[in-house]
Amino acid sequence: MAEAAASTQPESSQVIVVTSGKGGVGKTTTSANIGAALASLGKSVVLIDADIGLRNLDVVMGLENRIVYHLVDVVEGYCRLSQALIKDKRFDNLCLLPAAQTKDKTAVTPEQMRQLCKDLKREFDFVLVDSPAGIEQGFKNAVAGADRAIIVATPEVSSVRDADRIIGLLEAESMPAPKLVVNRIRPAMVRRGDMMDISDILDILAIDLLGVVPDDESIVVSTNRGEPAALSSASRAGQAYRNIARRLTGEQVPFMNLEDGAGLFGRLRRLFGTAH
């Protein structure tokens, strides 16, 4: 205990990569929301957008027009790390290191990412790396400096297949077993047997579940507005992300009951077995 207190670096400080293999499953939304939720818990957090050339995280965070320097500027020594970090509008303890939009993945090497993560780890409790889709250079860069990984998958066969591939690749990096976030689940469809349920996914991937995020229209709205849903108490997806953040800090949080949202109408529909 005394040792942890004496250390300049918080004991819990860790670099987490958010990755999926498949594109469009919600890596960036997940990164932004977990980051915001961790910040709201009082943790110091930096989000790294590792999707060089397809910069997105800044938009989702609503920080697009504050970018001056970016990740490639930092690794090329064109600016200092602190100059490139953008402070969030809502939280002083949340920062973003944006990607370059004009470069591509080859502008950075895994070794440079490793050093960058190491530097940021000294300053922040959580370093979240938003990985690009795919398994090539961009993915390799994103995982290079990570201590652990969060895999995002949607309840689709193709997404689960790609997640499985990624887990296999991470095993080769000798990282601890990644944690799974199932995104965009629709309880009504699962109930009708039209969508893979959580146990189907866990059966194949055989890793621990970190959270389940329901499909929620409020995510589309909040993403477009640059306001992470995790900060809105009305959003069910936001609630799910807040729970994930608490689990990351080591808290035991029960999984929320997704059925509640279906309401009376949903239950009636189930009773009569109507599908549309």
Partner: peptide, 25 residues
């Protein structure tokens, strides 16, 4: 002695015993 995941391939001149799953892909 592990699950063989998507994209992984095991080839062997002889018998193969997997103590785990063999996933799609």
């Amino acid at each position: 002695r592990r699950t063989v995941r998507s994209g992984q391939r095991v080839r062997f001149n002889g018998h193969v015993v997997v103590l785990g799953d063999v996933n799609p892909g």
